[in-house]
């Protein structure tokens, strides 16, 4: 029993307007269930998950902080950007307003976060458009285009059906691992990326030291 082992700990935050489904995405990711009637998030909730990226042969421990989208908590949410390695910027495909507000959220991220932070734009609630295309207020192409302009990853997902939720996190992780491989992050530069090291407890972490030296060197 060597405990749970992982190569990296990546800190993620989920941000975006109120009621776009941030908490539901997190719960879908960590518990594989749909949060039917969530209360508005007060402050920040936490969840974590191990994600394996087969191409890199790496296990990543994703620590995800779910932030409050309500305006009154916005200043608090800003405190999290600085320490994050990845950010899910969420909007609701059935709400034009939430997509437009994504610009100001992105501005916040750009102001406060590490410049190398990986940001993925997530259009949530696509399940609502499956039956009734008229409900969609943000065309996929438009969002994709904006993401490209801003240098963001992009995916449309549904916390309800689960479609693309894991994919969203995984593609963000891949991007971060890619950056690590390219040496964008020095070990200490981004507080959001941590190599796993055996700590003072008795928990041994397998293979972390060996892999870390190589992956940062290349």
């Amino acid at each position: 029993m060597a405990g749970i082992s992982w190569h990296y700990v990546l800190k993620f935050i989920i941000t975006g307007d109120a009621a776009v489904g941030k908490s539901s995405l997190l719960v879908r990711l960590t518990d594989q269930r749909f949060l039917a009637n969530p209360d508005p998030t007060l402050g920040v909730e936490f969840g974590s998950k191990l994600i394996t990226i087969p191409e890199e042969n790496k296990v990543v421990k994703l620590q995800c902080w779910d932030t409050a989208g309500t305006e009154s908590f916005r200043s608090i949410t800003r405190s999290y950007y600085r320490g994050a390695a990845g950010c899910l910027l969420v909007y609701d495909v059935t709400s034009r307003q939430s997509f437009q507000n994504a610009r100001s959220w992105l501005a916040d991220v750009r102001t406060h976060a590490d410049p190398h932070l990986t940001c993925i734009l997530v259009g949530n609630k696509v399940d609502l458009c499956a039956d009734d295309a008229a409900r969609r207020q943000v065309p996929t192409e438009e969002a994709e285009l904006w993401a490209k302009e801003e240098g963001l990853l992009f995916v449309e997902a549904s916390a309800k059906s689960g479609v693309n939720v894991d994919a969203a996190f995984e593609s963000a992780c891949r991007d971060i691992l890619e950056k690590i491989r390219k040496g964008v992050f020095d070990d200490d530069r981004s507080p959001g990326v941590k190599l796993s090291k055996p700590t003072n407890g008795n928990v041994a972490v397998d293979g972390s030291n060996g892999s870390s030296s190589t992956c940062c060197g290349t």
């Binding site: 405990g3 402050g43 920040v44 909730e45 936490f46 969840g47 974590s48 421990k61 620590q63 055996p198 700590t199 003072n200 407890g201 008795n202 928990v203 972490v205």
Partner: peptide, 16 residues
């Protein structure tokens, strides 16, 4: 703080 509790229990610190 349940959020911190769920964070804490994922870390190696409980063993410590």
């Amino acid at each position: 703080n349940t959020s911190n509790q769920s964070y804490f229990r994922e870390t190696p610190l409980p063993a410590l």
